[in-house]
Every structure is written in structure tokens, then in C-alpha cells.
Design a protein around this nucleic acid. Structure first.
Lengths: 329, 329
DNA sequence: TTGTAAGCGTTATCAA
DNA sequence: TTGATAACGCTTACAA
């Protein structure tokens, strides 16, 4: 029940080359013979074998996406952005979940390389030296989302500046004690850069940063919840807290509400990301809006340009964020 | 910088066949020559070409996933379940977003078939006759998640029964006017089956179902929001509403809160799905828990069994759901 | 405008 | 235990 180009050639009474030519529209073919071929294809229900084709032409129209965890609120939206433009340019995507685990990243990379992907979009908190070497030496074009590494194009936002604006927003509302629940501190962007933004905002306003108001979070809801609990248990709890991801911010809100405080009257919350749900929860979350879909779409667009050897302007594109005011502040 | 099996054969001073043998461990090879080969591989940084391999062996260790929209709360979790077991069995996954669009489904299917996927996991509200024909005639093994079609294995929950229990739960709490915001009525599972469960629960309790209390929703937040607005605008609004998806339920909660009602004092809300966020919002959502991760994992496991020609017990597996009581009821 | 044939990088059969 | 060689299904010179 599975036919190949030879079968249709035989059926149409032509050679396999002309069949190939009509399939790919690569060379002129006399209308009449073209019809014969098309009929044969139709009749047999023939589908070309892309694997065989790829072997010959040396590209697969497949690209890889490595994401920490598709089940994490942040990524589905960017993956969707990637997929939409990938589809537009006729690429199909391999999806891999790395759990931020270097071993897994390396292993997936090897697998994808063997499968001859044309390019890769990588998300993760940082690319290890070993992985970077693999990437460079493979000469598979890679574009990073949300992170940076030497010689690898990337799309990001300015995390430090965004974080700084977030806490300035809080400060301008008259808050004096603003706490922060950070990301993982080994994460250069979500952890370090955003905390740095916090510090700079405080310093520029001439406020002393109190280390007790800084608690290290992680990525998920639970760490936000716990971070807020410790913050609110302080002798003098903050009146506002900047939480470095929306998911943690939702956890923090929960903890704060449970402790009998009102949001935003007693304590204001500022998140980061603008994950889909953040505008839908109650109270809705003020946050820094990252253009997730666009990040994906732009990264993929960048990749297609590289693949087509179009000149790319800057290969580090930094996108705009926005501060979004909702009910939690 | 890219080497093939010939290069390593030359470097190791052996034939390509023995290289192949050491790579695949397919035949005994003298330890000493094996070492030579391994060294050559190491030195060149050789990576086998899976495309060439697939062409020869006629399978790709790739499977497809078709999902309506990865950015929709429900799917990332099941995709994660799929990916985890796929990875375990050394499959890598192609991810496709169909937007529930038949054209796109058909087109993706053709694309994936050309790319010679070994199997497919399909999510969608229903498989069209044409798509089903393609699936059957392609002899690519397909397993459905959340839907059914003749001759296609599936993993589902009993939507009607689950919905019935959801509204019984509400009824048992003494509610007499319970409204329902349905899914899209052309969706057999999320729409029809769940509504049927509602009707049956009402009937079995000897309650007359009032058509004004039934409003058709869709999939997303907005339709839940709007559905609740119309319900609460009724002369005699419901005291409880069963909303056929959590995302809509969150929208409904919002609308109800905005209208000045209290949850659950004035109106109780029951969702469906137990999407990650539903336990994290405030008030947290009572809901029917679908085992999303497991659905994915089990579907993929089923697929691997089919691919390995293991005997599969039932090819329609229906999983348990649970009714989860939280703050909204 | 069409056909013949080589070659893409593997695996596997067959012989040695 | 190893090596030659024919496939796998396609594209693309090159020739006709």
C-alpha cells in the first residue's frame, strides 16, 4: 500500500526523473505528461518520502526547540510563536524538554544533530561551555531565547532594566519597604539581572537595600508562596513585593492573602512575564510584560534568515517589555 | 567538518561495515578493531546520520503530536506526559498546532507522513472522515487523546459520567438552580457529553432542566466570562454553575466577582480539567480532575506497544477522573 | 522535453 | 571476524 517514485513512473509510463520534476516543479514538463503523472500520483495515493529527499538534498526542513519545560506557564506561548512562523516557512519542529539539565541538553542536541535538523532554538537559563562547543562545531545555526552566549544570536529583553522599572513603579507609589523574591540566583537573567535591577532602583532612589527583604525564589508557584511567607513573617514586613516571575507572584499572592493581608491595600505585588493567566486571576497581577509570542516568532524568523543566508542586521535582538498595571498594585 | 562513516572507516583502517557494526553493536567485532574504530569516531567527532539510517531501516524514531493549541492551558501538561515516555523509548516528537482546523490537520498529517513518522498522537475535538481515511490508509499507528473514532485506539475519561458527578456534587450541596456553561456544542466530548452529564444529573434528581440555565461556551476564558455574565443577569440567577473547562471557569469566576457576588457564598463554581492554575487562583477552583500528564504518558505508552507489536489489552483506555473540592464550592 | 545513471550515508546480505 | 556491494527513495547532472 506504500508506493514510491518508481511505481508512479511505471504507472504513468514515464521515467522517475520526470516524476520528480512534476513533484518539485523543478523543470518544465509537457502539460500532457504532467497530467499523466499527476493522475498516477492521485490514483496511487503516492506521498513522496521526505527522508530520502533529505538525504539527497542535505536539509530536512525540521528544526529543534529545546525548552526547559513545556508545562511551565511561560514557554507554551513562545513555542506557539515559533511554530507559527516555522510553519509559514515550511519547517516542522522537534520539541524537547530539558528540565534545565545539562546532560539532557547535550543528549538532545546530539540526537537532533543526528536527525539533521536545519536549525535550533534554545531556551534555558544558560548554555554550558560544553554545549556551546557542540553548537559551534556542529555548524547548526542556533538562536537563543532569553539568554546569551558568545557568538550565538539571541532574542531577549533587557531584564535588568525591566526589573528596575518594576521596582521604580512600586517606589513611585510611595512604598518604602519593597521586598523581592528573586529567581534562581544561578540563572543569569531571571536571577541575577532582575535582582540587579532591583538593587539599582533602590540605590538610585537613595534607599538602602535591606538584605532581609531579598529572598531567593526559584521558578514555580511554591517558591513564590514560601518566599512571601518568610517575607511577611518579618518583624516589619514589606508593603510591596517584586516577584521575579508571575507564577511565583501568584504563589506569593496566595500566601499573602492567607496571612490576612489585603492586596493591594496592605501589600502590593508586582510580577514579571505577563503569562496568560496573570490577567485572569483575582486580583489580577500587575507585571512586566514580556512579548512571549513575539520572542518565539522573531527568534524563528531570525533563524529562517540565517538559513537562507539573508543578511541579518543585529544578531542580538532585544525586545521591548511593558509595565502592566492591574489590580495587585 | 562533517564526517561520514567512510571517513571513520578510512581513518580506522577498516571497512564501513565494521564501523557500522561497532556503532550499532549489531555483530561481534574484535575488541582491538573496535577500539580503533571508537578512537576514529572520537577523533573526528563523527555523528551518524539518522536520516540515511532511517532511509535504510524504514523507521525514524520520530512521532508526531497534533494538538489544537499548545498555548491552551490544557495541552502542555499532556504533551509533557507524552514527551517523557517518548524520550524513554527513544522517540523524538514533532509538535503541530492545528487550531482545530481540519485543513491544517490534513496538511500536517501529510507533512508528517512524508517525514515518515513512526506513529502519531492526535488531540482534537473530533477526527473528520477525511482525516480518518488518511490515517487508516497510511498505516501509521495513531492514538487519540480525549476523543474517539472507529478503529482508532484512544485514551479518554468518561466525560458524561464525570460531568454528571460534578453537578451531583453541586446538587448534593443543596443547590436548586445550577447553571451550566458548556463547551462548543459541536465538540462531542467537551460539548455534548458534558452537557448530557448535566442533564442526566438533573433528571435523576427529579429536577426539571431549565434551558435558560444552559449557555453555550467555547474553550477560552472569555467565553466563560461572558457565559457567566448572561447567567447572572437572569431574573433569577443560579446559585451554582458548572463550567465545562477550568479556563472558562476562571473567566466565569471573574465575571461573578465583578458583579458583586461572593464565591462560594452566593454562587458556587465547579470547573473541569484541573489545569495547573486552578488550584492556585483565589478562590481556588473545585473541579473535575483529568489526569492530563497520565493521559499523555499512557497514550504514548500505548503507541510504543503498538509499534513493537506487543499485544495491547483494550485499545480504548478510559482513565479515572476525580472530583476535587476546593474553595469555589 | 525526457531518460539514464550516479550518488546522498547508511544497513545488511553474502562471501571470504 | 571482516569486507564488497546492493539496496533504501529520492534529486540532478548529463545525454539524448
Amino acid at each position: 500500500m506504500k508506493f514510491n517514485i518508481k511505481d508512479v513512473a511505471r504507472k504513468a509510463g514515464v521515467s522517475i526523473s520526470t516524476v520528480s520534476r512534476v513533484i518539485n516543479n523543478s523543470k518544465p514538463v509537457k502539460p500532457k505528461t504532467k497530467d499523466k503523472v499527476l493522475d498516477a500520483i492521485e490514483e496511487l495515493g503516492y506521498r513522496p518520502n521526505a527522508i530520502a529527499r533529505s538525504l539527497k538534498i542535505k536539509h530536512t526542513q525540521s528544526i529543534g526547540i529545546m525548552t526547559p519545560d513545556i508545562a511551565n506557564q511561560f514557554y507554551p506561548e513562545v513555542v506557539r510563536g515559533i511554530e507559527d512562523v516555522a510553519n509559514m516557512y515550511e519547517y516542522t519542529i522537534f520539541l524537547c524538554n530539558t528540565d534545565l539539565n545539562e546532560e539532557k541538553e547535550l543528549q538532545y542536541f546530539a540526537e537532533l544533530e543526528e536527525k539533521q535538523i536545519d536549525g535550533l532554538i534554545f531556551m534555558g537559563n544558560h548554555v554550558s561551555e560544553e554545549l556551546r562547543n557542540e553548537m559551534i562545531s556542529s555548524d547548526i545555526p542556533v538562536v537563543l531565547i532569553g539568554g546569551k552566549a558568545a557568538d550565538l544570536p539571541s532574542v531577549t529583553i533587557n531584564n535588568e532594566k525591566a526589573a528596575k522599572e518594576a521596582v521604580e513603579f512600586l517606589l513611585n507609589r510611595g512604598h518604602h519597604r519593597v521586598g523581592v523574591i528573586t529567581g534562581k540566583m544561578k540563572d543569569p537573567m531571571m536571577g541575577q539581572a532582575r535582582l540587579k535591577g532591583y538593587r539599582r532602583a533602590m540605590e538610585e532612589k537613595g534607599m538602602q537595600v535591606q538584605e532581609e527583604l531579598i529572598v531567593e525564589g526559584g521558578y514555580r508557584y511554591k517558591s513564590g508562596y514560601e518566599g512571601a511567607k518568610t517575607l511577611m513573617a518579618l518583624p516589619e514586613p514589606p508593603t510591596a513585593v517584586f516577584v521575579c516571575s508571575d507564577e511565583m507572584a501568584i504563589g506569593a499572592s496566595r500566601a499573602i492573602l492567607e496571612d490576612g493581608f489585603k492586596i493591594p491595600e496592605d501589600v502590593a505585588i508586582m510580577g514579571f512575564d505577563n503569562v496568560d493567566i496573570s490577567g485572569k486571576v483575582y486580583p489580577s497581577l500587575s507585571t512586566i510584560g514580556q512579548p512571549m509570542y513575539e520572542m518565539g516568532a522573531i527568534a524563528m524568523r531570525l533563524l529562517t534568515k540565517i538559513l537562507q543566508h539573508e543578511s541579518i542586521g543585529a544578531s542580538d535582538v532585544v525586545l521591548d517589555y511593558e509595565v502592566i498595571e492591574r489590580e495587585s498594585t
